[in-house]
């Protein structure tokens, strides 16, 4: 079972990202379970979106303790997130302009950075980073397929469909290189 954790601050779109990723894996014929938890219904507090993906029905109903992959919307959350949910094998994609070396002091983790805001702004998405981060995550993880992800982004984006798709594609290409060098 693939255990994915997406963390952001309330209002950043972590819950939506979890749902879109779940839709994509579901469209690929996988069994999925995704749910978000939050400490209070307020903007700015940390939101955890959990996503389980498997080839058989998922029965357990609990939070993830060790994530196989993490998507982090806000690098100020990274120290707590890593110590609570990650180990050396966890693939961590973080929204940041900085290079992965900037996070070496946090420990021995497999961190990939992606400038979500930069990509979003370049593609006319302003500060809406969801599609960029999903593309980056799929590229780094090697799944789900970009074709299915783009199909879901296109179906669900309420406005600016081409801009969302372009952000998703650009970020995907950037991190896919990392995925390819890893295998």
């Amino acid at each position: 079972m693939l255990e994915i954790l997406i963390q952001g601050r309330g209002g950043q779109g972590a819950q939506t990202a979890g749902n879109l990723l779940a839709r994509t894996f579901f469209a690929e014929g996988k069994f999925v379970q995704t749910f978000a938890t939050y400490g209070g219904a307020r903007r700015g507090t940390p939101v955890n979106s959990f996503l389980l993906v498997d080839d058989k029905p998922i029965r357990r109903r609990c939070s993830i303790e060790r994530a196989g992959a993490i998507l982090c919307f806000d690098d100020s959350l990274l120290p707590g997130l890593l110590s609570q949910f990650a180990d050396r094998d966890t693939l961590v994609v973080v929204n940041s302009r900085r290079s992965p070396e900037a996070y070496e002091s946090l420990g021995d983790y497999k961190i990939i950075t992606i400038d979500g805001i930069g990509i979003a702004q370049k593609n006319g998405m302003g500060r809406i980073i969801n599609s960029a981060l999903l593309g980056a995550f799929a590229g780094a993880l090697g799944q789900p397929s970009m074709a299915k992800l783009k199909q879901v982004v296109e179906e669900t984006a309420p406005v600016k469909k081409p801009e969302n798709l372009a952000s998703c594609q650009e970020a995907y290409e950037l991190t896919q290189e990392v995925f390819e060098t890893r295998i």
């Binding site: 069994f31 938890t37 998922i58």
Partner: peptide
Amino acid sequence: FYVSHAME
């Protein structure tokens, strides 16, 4: 959450 917000 485990059921109310669990999408599957």
